[in-house]
Design a protein around this nucleic acid. Structure first.
Lengths: 187, 187
DNA sequence: ATCGTATGATATACACTGTATCACGTGTAC
DNA sequence: GTACACGTGATACAGTGTATATCATACGAT
């Protein structure tokens, strides 16, 4: 069995939850490991039995989210309606808004967001065929789709999800996908 | 006379230069104040006679750049060719690539990049008149223009300025400005 | 019920921050 | 050019957070 000890899972769950809470309350940088362990009601030294430092904990927390998100968008091919794909994406953000806020606010502390963009760009490039004579290099076009989408999510979170996930999906299609595909991709 | 003491200007110049160098070498977070003062060959305590902390120094360094950039793009109105404005922008980035790299890599440690986006968005909104029936809210459209431009600059820096500033200006117009204006603005 | 192990509590070494102090040297003003 | 003002260098110090080590205890797996 690969199943972990209940105590381990409990400790890691409490630490992750505490990190998310404290980051949303006071910002990632100002949260200390002692803060996390106290909020989680876990011994200070115990933290280091699971993670080397604060970034490692955050990294693990966010990797789960990112894997889920990638898995969510993976099955869709270029022939699907971009608005539907977008709606799925924004629905996921809606259902995991706390963690997404942490992810987007803690950028910079490590190259995590950059890794997300790289992975996403690769995905976009795989799912599209480049146009013959395009003014815009496909690497730039793919990067633009991913980075703009993240910026759009950021805006949505900063404005407390004022529009529905469906509306955001449509905006995502009209503002980002359609114009970029028209310029650089055959489809 | 408002002119500062030569020693003050010298110290601040050395500290700023040291911060930029070290940040490009090892990343902003891992640079300590002691590192900066040693590289600048300045007494440790002297640092605090000018800045409260590391972020204050970075903030001052970047504010100069941002003011210059805003001043550069300010005179242009909506009737100018977006590609020309874009070329100017990318030329500025080219001529100040080191500081721009620091700005874009150190995001997160403070809300600086977010402030840039907010200021830029306000500017875009002032220079455009919203279309009557648009599917895309103008706040989102303006935010998209600014955030996408920053992402494009980021891509350019990460790929060692492989294209010319003129080419990037054209891409900026075709990929970002034209599609967004067509959707949300009368011009 | 027993063994293995995760945890709690505590102590410690270490690094960095931020402040205080004083002697020294440079810049400015006259 | 001289005198004074002031910025600087060097050092010491307290405070805070990190990371490791140790030992007794309590929990989980079998």
């Amino acid at each position: 069995m690969e199943v972990q000890d209940r105590r381990v899972k409990r400790t890691q769950r409490l630490l992750a939850q505490a990190l998310i809470e404290l980051t949303l309350e006071r910002g990632y940088e100002s949260v200390t490991i002692r803060d996390i362990t106290e909020r989680a009601d876990i011994g200070y030294a115990t933290f280091f039995r699971h993670y080397t430092d604060k970034d490692a904990l955050l990294h693990e927390v966010l990797e789960v989210v990112l894997d889920e998100m990638l898995l969510l968008l993976q099955p869709f091919k270029a022939d699907a309606d971009p608005a539907s794909v977008g709606t799925l994406l924004f629905r996921y953000v809606q259902d995991h808004s706390e963690v997404c806020r942490v992810l987007l606010s803690s950028r910079g502390s490590m190259g995590l967001l950059q890794k997300v963009i790289e992975t996403g760009t690769r995905n976009v490039l795989e799912q599209h065929t480049p146009a013959e004579q395009s003014q815009v290099p496909i690497e730039i076009a793919a990067h633009h789709i991913v980075a703009s989408s993240i910026a759009l999510i950021q805006w949505w979170l900063d404005h407390d999800l004022v529009y529905s996930a469906e509306q955001m999906g449509t905006i995502y299609r009209d503002l980002i996908v359609r114009p970029t595909e028209a310029l650089a991709f055959n489809d």
